[in-house]
Each structure stands twice: as structure tokens, then as C-alpha cells.
Write a protein that binds this DNA or RNA. Sequence first.
DNA 1: CCTACCGATCGGTAGG
DNA 2: CCTACCGATCGGTAGG
Lengths: 218, 218
Amino acid sequence: MPARARKPDEDVRTRTLRVATRMLAERGFDGTSLQDVADEVGVAKPSLLYHFPSKEALRAAVFAQMLGHWNVALPRILRAATSGEDQFDGVLGEMIRFFSEDPDRATLVLREVLDRPREMARVIKRHMKPWLDSVAGYIRKGQAQGHLHPDADAEAYVSHVTTFLISTIAVQRLLAPLPDAQSVRELVRMARASLFRTPPPAATKPAPARKSTARKKA
Amino acid sequence: MPARARKPDEDVRTRTLRVATRMLAERGFDGTSLQDVADEVGVAKPSLLYHFPSKEALRAAVFAQMLGHWNVALPRILRAATSGEDQFDGVLGEMIRFFSEDPDRATLVLREVLDRPREMARVIKRHMKPWLDSVAGYIRKGQAQGHLHPDADAEAYVSHVTTFLISTIAVQRLLAPLPDAQSVRELVRMARASLFRTPPPAATKPAPARKSTARKKA
DNA sequence: CCTACCGATCGGTAGG
DNA sequence: CCTACCGATCGGTAGG
């Protein structure tokens, strides 16, 4: 008797990670019990503790999986980044893509920042700071070249755009004050307009990006 | 015997609200037990349940107190709002003041959005939407007059600036990537630069505001 | 991967 | 405002 597997092609560990990711994002760590997760996965509670030695370990595994996805996406983001305006859309578009393609990622990051700020400060330093710094470097270069706002604070700008982006994606789907596309479009416009001195290049769809074959722009 | 009051000039209800506000912001609702709160207030757990009939009621009271503070601050914010550039700094400055003066307010709002999105959608509609809409109206007027970016989406802009502001204040003190003043300054600059067509009026300290006696600007 | 069970803690009540 | 106590649920273990 194969008991009560719901997706027989997926093993318990995989299903548990998927279910736990959703529940941790939705209810938070303290609001989610192992029993809740076990019920939804379709196994007994102690079975979870065979795959993950503790609730804390499950949390860590969920987060590690998300970090893994981030590290898969990073090369693509880095490839999009070099300098100039076209690259701006590329990088921002890839970051938006990463968090929009599974908004639980944004929610999870936000919750972790609230619940375990010290640990998250370490993770950010390790996994995001390096390339945020390099983006800040490009911004300073662009400022020296004169096409970016000279009074922008490069470090604060990249840090703020990241917070802005993650928070907006996490909050947007919960409160849904306006359509998703509209929300993203204005976010991109704001990030752009507060960085570039020149107005945006007409209505050349500034959003998701990565399809653009065009090169620099002047 | 007056038992073990820590601030004898403050009654238990007041102290409980103060302690609970801090703990709910720091650990969240599910991460905070009534026993934790009682211990810190210096009373027995059932005493809390005399003042607040349930944990849920305590949460509601904490949130209601914050909403009360908001409704006290609102007139000042509305007074600062009329239209144009000087008013922009006034309104934004007052909002920043409200959340910066007690960052628990920002954290609490963020947690409530994550934990009880439906209820928070109602609260926002009731307590923030009306005047966010009126700010959006001023923005559209400014766009018609030509000194604001014509491609800005007024509704999305005000909603995003609010999210941006609350998230940044809540996250900033937890991760502290950079000094508070620097963080706020860049936030204001970004909000400004993404709305106004003209560059900011030199280095005329654009931030906290409300001391400004200057009137419109041209 | 299961059943059976553990001590600890949860929010809340009785009763004064 | 307290002591004493409640049933329910928590994360986790024993043992197979």
C-alpha cells in the first residue's frame, strides 16, 4: 500500500520543501506548525523530522533552496549588467523576474528580515552585497560620465531599489491595490527617473527586459 | 502592598500596550506569548486578560493605538499638503517623521500586511486611501501644469512611495546598511527625482521639513 | 515512513 | 490583580 502520496512522481522531501515554502511565506515560521505542513504533504509529522531533523532545519532548507535559485539567476543578472542605460533595464528586469516568478521569495525574504535580522544581514552581505557594490560602482562611473543624477547616493540607491522591489512585490499581491503590470511599470519608471538625468526613451517598454537586442544608446 | 510595579506612575493597561507594541513589532503576533508580555510588564498572565479579554484583543488594541497616533498626525500632514514642490517635502517629511519617530509603527504595519492582508486592505482603504487619492489628485494637477513627470502614474506613485517609505524604515534599523540620515536623504531624493521634472533646488536640505517658511517656488 | 507518546508551553478560565 | 488549573497543541523522541 503506497499510503497517501498526492504527487507520486515527487518524493516527500521535494513536496515538503514546496509546501513549507508556501506556508512559511504565508503564515511565517511561528505561525506554521510541523503538523500543518505534514497534513498538507500527506505524511505523519515524525516523517518530516526524518527528512529534516528539526523545524529549524526545515526553515533553513527552505531558505537554502531559495538562495540556490538566486545563485542560479545571478549569472544571468550579472550578464545583463555592465553599465549604461540599456543594462539598467536588464539588471532591474532580471531582479523583478526573479521575485515575480515566485512572489513567495519576496515574502520569505521580508519575513526573514523581520524575524531574524542578524542572520539576514549576514546572508545579504554574503550573497547580495558583492554585486550590489559592483552595481553601485557602475552608477558612480555613470555619474562621472554625466548621464546619471550626480546627487544620487550610489550605495543607498541600490540598497533602496532592492528593498523597494522586494517589498512591493511581496505587498502587492497581498493588498492588490492595482494590476500587477501597472505596479511594476511604475516601479521601474521611478527607479529609472530617479537615476537618469535624461527622460526615458519614449515609450519603448522599459519593463521586463532581456529580449532587447539593442546595444548602448548614444 | 503595591506588588511589583516598575513605573508606578503608569497603569498596567498603558504599560501593557507599550510593551506589547514593542514585542509584537519585534517578534510578531505568533512569536509573542502572553506570558512574555506579562513577565515584562511585571504582572501575572491572567491580569493581562483582565485588561484585554484575549490575545487577539491585545493585538487589536495595540493596532488601534497606532491608528490613533496616525489620526493625530493626519491633520498636520493634510495641512502640509496643497500642491506644488514645497508641499511635497512637507507631506513626505511628515510621513517620514511619523514612522521614524517610532519605527515600531512601520514594522507593525509591515507585519500586519503579511499576517492579515485582508484586514489590512480594509484598514488602508479606510484610513489611508482617501488622502492618498487626494495626493494623487494634486499630482495629476501638477502634471497638467507641466512641472511633474507626465508619464508618472499618480495612484501607483503614491502607493509605491508609501510602501517604499514604510519598508525602508522598518528594514533599515534591522539591517542598518547605512546611517539613518543618509538612508532617508536618498529616499527623499528618489521620491522627488521620480516625480519632478526639474532637478532639486540645489542643496536646500530637502528632508524632514515643516520648519520651512518658504512658499511655492515659481 | 508509521504509531505512540513525551514534557513544555500555549491561550484562556475559575474563583476569589 | 492573584493562584491554581484547564484542554489543546507545540516540537521532538522511542522504537520499530
